[in-house]
Amino acid sequence: MARQAASRAKSSASTAKKPAGGGKKSAPKFTPEQIRKFYYDMLLIRRFEEKAGQIYGMGLIGGFCHLYIGQEAVVVGMKSAITDDDAVITSYRDHGHMLACGMDPKGVMAELTGREGGYSKGKGGSMHMFSKEKNFYGGHGIVGACVPLGTGLAFSQKYQDSNDITLCYMGDGTANQGQVYESFNMAELWSLPVVYVIENNEYAMGTSVKRSSAQTQLYKRGESFNVPGEQVDGMDVFAVAAAGRKAVDWVRSGKGPYILEMKTYRYRGHSMSDPAKYRSKEEVNKKRAEHDPIDHLRQTMLDDKINTEEELKEVDRKIKAIIADAVEFAQNSPEPQPEELYTDVVA
């Protein structure tokens, strides 16, 4: 049994060593409807984050604010592979995950501005938001903590004999935390239905994967526990969605956890106050110019005549209006009542 598991992990890792669909356009196995939704969801996240960055600059958002710009294809592709009953959990670069889960941009933006209309009534902020209704379990500020927590969600799903699974996101920085491996071990030992999605955006704050990791191929990090892993072009929503389907099918069928390493890139700093001394402007510009997930999809849609230029512009306008509404809501929603200071501590 153990042997079987080992060989399965190995073959799975070796067949998928190269990023799928990298650079060239993947043959879409997706309906025009799905593709339009990919575009819409990614653009919504992009515009939301740009706006968040802007109003941070105006002093409307305080503290830490980690933007997701550049990584949109990961959450949007993965979301397409799960159902609304499946659970999602991540660390603190979490705005994109929430929007992909269908959480209201108004509530997310109002949490960023610390207002009572925010998802946590203004008491959580950028890094700590949840939606029980949308099965989004946070939003966790401590690097690594979401991994055992996500494994616990999967534990509960299995314990309750449901058919649901958990998507447990983490970054390349998280991949060096000890509790991640404690979780991989138990998840495989107990065959828990969890897909670990490592969003490798190349930098943990200012430390590159090369400077932090003895094994830089992060999809291999489950090998000692017989957890199969796969590396995916995280800038290509089709590749993400396809790999997501495969991984989700695997865990839903009771075979235990699965690791997806998404090769992605964040355009902005680690947080808003990032001096960006650890990478060159050329590197960032090159990624943006050649690998932007939204530009790439937009071109595919035009080439394949899924939408016209004008139709896509209309989508853009629609999203702009949604974001403008969200900002207006986030600015006008009152600050939490002083009484809120003492509520929700214990029940």
Partner: peptide, 16 residues
């Protein structure tokens, strides 16, 4: 301990 304490908390979030 770190791992199973976290798994316990996750399971509690999820209704156990």
């Amino acid at each position: 301990e770190h791992g199973f304490a976290g798994i316990g908390v996750g399971a509690a979030f999820h209704g156990l």
